[in-house]
Design a protein around this nucleic acid. Structure first.
Lengths: 143, 143
DNA sequence: TTATTAAATTATAATTGTTATAAATAGTTT
DNA sequence: AAACTATTTATAACAATTATAATTTAATAA
């Protein structure tokens, strides 16, 4: 239930020190329903941590990713976005305003199996994003 | 049949000038079975075009993308890779050596439909990549 | 064919996201 | 408390990409 507590436990289990900065970054990731960039996190926390370095944000996001708490979403042009891992879900992205909406779908195991069979790869995972126009932007277009 | 000719026709139709540089970049994209980065293209053509600027490569790849001739593959860390669009296919990527293998699969229309229904987005397209270990790297691991 | 004109190329500088480095700081363990 | 290690900070470096302005060139019509 308490995601932050669970996350902190995960860190403790894996021997990652819990620093105030890490605590705050995790908290921010969990509470923000968006998918913030490293810079957004940095800016959001500079009130609480005026001396925190951008490197700290990047370092810790990498740590969280390695531990499996956070997923990095990489689109082409802009900077990476970070997503606190809860359940397995995909993202639907608006090509006009960049809004990202979560979208649950049973994992595409079938595709992984076929890919593995055809290519001989040992398949670990996959990524998928869906692109389109969000309702807000659709509305604007019409007028 | 002749992909290069078709591509040049597409450019003509859309009013995009056919310059020697564009011709060469397209030719390289079509002939290379790999998925080159902008820099790889730049280096590959510097024999033929010693004065060509990197900007030219980037500019033209953008033009090709806008016209639909080329698809940009964006992974997180490294630079974008470019894929001459032939038929609809996905990519299987080796997490160890970075090798990219094409993989045909009937489009996941079903997922797009569901996403559209759930989120209210007007869905245009999607991307999917599959990650794993290629046979070569699997072999090396064992020893 | 040549003259015209808008588009493309070039060279360069600037920008941006991210990572590397080294010194300072803060937890942990003995 | 001392010693050790992980973490943070500040800064510099890097690499991919884009912006700019001057120059050149492709397409087209006289």
């Amino acid at each position: 239930m308490n995601q932050l507590k669970e996350a902190l436990d995960t860190l403790k289990e894996t021997g990652v020190r819990i620093t105030p900065q890490r605590h705050a970054i995790l908290e921010y990731l969990i509470n923000s329903m968006s998918h913030p960039t490293a810079d957004e996190i940095y800016k959001a926390l500079e009130g609480k941590f005026p001396n925190m370095s951008v490197a700290t944000v990047y370092n810790n996001l990498r740590v969280f990713r390695e531990v499996g708490l956070v997923k990095e979403l990489t689109f082409g042009d802009a900077s990476s976005r970070f997503d606190f891992v809860t359940s397995h879900h995909y993202h639907v992205i608006c090509e006009h305003c960049g809004k990202i909406v979560d979208f649950h779908y049973p994992g595409l195991d079938e595709v992984e199996d076929l890919a593995s069979h055809v290519t001989g790869f040992k398949v670990d995972n996959h990524r998928m994003e869906i692109y389109g126009t969000c309702p807000d932007c659709s509305g604007k277009e019409v007028h």
